[in-house]
Design a protein around this nucleic acid. Structure first.
Length: 584
RNA sequence: GCUCCUAUAGCUCAGCUGGAUAGAGCAACGGAUUUCUAAUCCGUAGGUCACAGGUUCGAAUCCUGUUGGGAGUACCA
């Protein structure tokens, strides 16, 4: 049990003893103290309660402290306007070290109610290689999947690949008219991209061409043999290319059901919405409109134009008969509910699609489907000038190139610092550090904000970076390497005394509090910054408390702390999808 | 126009379901290495939390307004 829940229990019991009339739904809150001068944990219960019960907060805090039974666990005192501060005893810390070492879950409790959570992330388009824009969804989605799974949920990671949308009409048109067979053999993905871009550029000034592309899409969706054949080849080629990157990133999906997977259901989906009265014909298209329950301002189907509120429908069948992503998304919801019994669906998708998801969620609710849906929105990755990242040619940088750049930068530093290591190991390390850097940079930012992509800073070895964490792990491990024999970690005598030791176990013990908090608001950066703090505490401990030169209980305590640190570090990095090397 | 996101140290960013003296990294300055990997640690300096009101014991955090930045806004995803 985490210290927070333990202290909350104790507080709750004390309140019960005092026989106070608690307001309905009142729960006690305990938080880690920001400043250790105030102790380890604090509760504002007395202040909150005093206000509601019209009592004096400090007086109430005094009563609570009298009633609370935490002998041996913590000392507590009243402070300031009525805070109750808890300072854990050395014994409590020592027990915690032992508890963590004997616990596979490192103090993280599994959830009591397991939910089926679908995480929809990455979602690249075929025929277009992944670019910088896919970093965020792919990495955030992967981490959230890992964390939810570790918490005990039944996670279904689904890569909703864009293989059926309008862009495909352009690819098919290009294939039929501009295909360079030799180039296709040589570099298939580059050729597909060239076809798409070439046609896409031409359509900007050519309305007739745009129409031809739309026609190709309609033919495809209606089962035209030639178009289907082209489509199949493109999808296969693209998937191979995508898989290579996912392998490199160590990211796995349970399913990669592309938009095309739902093709057979699309017509039925539209029909059922029409039958349910949720959609109707408008300007030749079939659209879903507002349910009318919300105020215009809050209604995702309403928009104000020049002072007038108008409908902004969700189009589920275009006037040319083709379906679009809205239709597919609706069908996908049905599939996930029916086949996977989803309790929750998380869409890790760019913030720019917020209004689309609001509409989708609103419709789903109006259809009477019971499922929690969340749009895990994120911002843009910008270049150093603060505008969206672009290559010199003005294109979006490809993900593969970004990874290679990061790995190359890591290799350079590695050569300088650890030139003596075998070439093969250096290559693997560069990969781990380079990829880890990209991932950590992503995960250490709040997902909603934009951030600046600075390769040099990412791979830099100082500061809040992946290599800093990885180096911390290497440092712990180096201690054990010097031991002739590893101790039995469950049989160590642990007596935490030194401030640096206390600070370290304080951080270690917080792991069980941090992991559930990640899913609370779906913020991986909570875990990222926790790991930095943990690593920092470890480095301080490492400098202040010699392990191998100490003896007896002191040494056993420190070995136990080191082991616990290494386990939490490795595990936490694992949840972020980052490797923890044994040496570097 | 309307909706959503956003504004915190010179730079890059945390902190936001209200809590005590607003944190970290980089850059700057000073120190630590015959000692478990110095890719480290310890310290100094650096702030009108965009601005103005409000809510209350208490606001970077919640509410209202203003300003700056970004995004979306009928058949693209």
């Amino acid at each position: 049990m985490t210290f927070i829940s333990l202290l909350q229990q104790k507080l709750q019991a004390a309140l019960l003893d005092l026989a106070l009339e608690l307001p309905e739904g009142f729960t006690v809150q305990v938080t880690a103290s920001q400043d250790t001068n105030f102790g380890d944990y604090q509760a504002n219960t007395a202040m909150v309660l005093a206000k509601r019960l019209k009592m004096n907060p400090r007086e109430l805090a005094g009563q609570i402290i009298e009633a609370i039974d935490i002998d041996g666990l913590a000392e507590c005192e009243i402070a300031g306007p009525g805070f109750i501060n808890f300072r854990l005893t050395p014994k409590a810390w020592s027990h915690k070290v032992e508890a963590i070492l004997s616990d596979d879950r490192l103090g993280v409790e599994a959830v009591s109610s397991v939910r089926n959570i679908v995480v929809d992330f990455s979602s690249p388009n075929v025929a277009k290689p992944m670019h910088v824009g896919h970093i965020r969804s792919t990495i955030i989605g992967d981490t959230l999947s890992r964390v939810a799974r570790f918490l005990g949920h039944n996670v279904i990671a689904d890569n909703h690949i864009g293989d059926w949308g309008t862009q495909f009409g352009k690819v098919i048109y290009g294939w039929k008219n501009l295909l360079d067979e030799a180039a296709l053999k040589e570099k298939p993905l580059a050729e597909l991209l060239r076809l798409y871009k070439s046609v896409h550029d031409s359509t900007k000034a050519d309305e007739a061409l745009e129409q031809l592309c739309r026609d190709e899409l309609v033919k495809l969706q209606q089962g035209d043999e030639e178009n289907l054949k082209i489509w199949k080849i493109c999808v296969e080629l693209s998937r191979e290319g995508l898989q290579k990157i996912y392998d490199r990133l160590d990211i796995k999906f349970d399913y990669s059901l592309g938009e095309s997977y739902y093709n057979q259901q699309l017509a039925g989906t539209v029909d059922s919405l029409v039958e349910a009265g949720l959609a109707r014909e408008s300007e030749g298209a079939i659209c879903a409109f507002s349910g009318g329950q919300l105020a215009d301002k809050k209604d995702p189907f309403r928009i104000n134009r020049d002072g007038e509120w108008q409908d902004i429908p969700m189009i589920i069948r275009k006037k040319d008969g083709a379906f679009n992503y809205a239709t597919t998304d609706l069908a996908t919801v049905d599939h996930r509910l029916k086949e996977w019994k989803a309790d929750e669906m998380l869409y890790v998708v760019d913030a720019r699609q917020a209004s689309h998801f609001k509409q989708l969620f609103d419709i789903t609710e109006r259809r009477g489907l019971d499922v929690k849906m969340e749009h895990i929105a994120f911002g843009t990755i910008n270049g150093k000038d603060g505008t969206p990242l672009k290559t010199r040619e003005g294109d979006l940088p490809q993900l593969e190139d970004i990874l290679s750049d990061a790995v190359a930068a890591a290799a350079e530093v590695l050569e300088e610092k650890s030139g003596h290591l075998p070439a093969e190991e250096k290559a693997a390390l560069a990969e781990a550090i380079g990829i880890g850097s990209v991932k950590f940079t992503e995960l250490s930012h709040h997902r909603a904000s934009d951030y600046i992509f600075d390769l040099d800073k990412m791979v830099a070895l100082q500061g809040d970076t992946a290599p800093y964490l990885q180096y911390s792990y290497v440092r712990v491990k180096s201690i054990f390497k010097k031991l002739e024999q590893l101790p039995d970690f469950n049989a160590l005598a642990v007596e935490v005394t030194e401030p640096a030791e206390v600070q370290l176990i304080r951080m270690i013990s917080r792991y069980g509090e941090v992991i559930p908090a990640v899913m609370d608001g779906y913020k991986p950066n909570t875990l990222a910054s926790y790991l930095i703090e943990l690593a920092r505490s470890f480095h301080s401990f490492f400098e202040a408390c010699p392990v191998l030169k100490s003896e007896g209980t002191v040494q056993e305590t420190r070995l136990a702390l080191c082991e616990a640190t290494s386990r939490v570090l490795e595990h936490g990095l694992g949840l972020l999808g980052i490797q923890a090397p044994k040496r570097m």
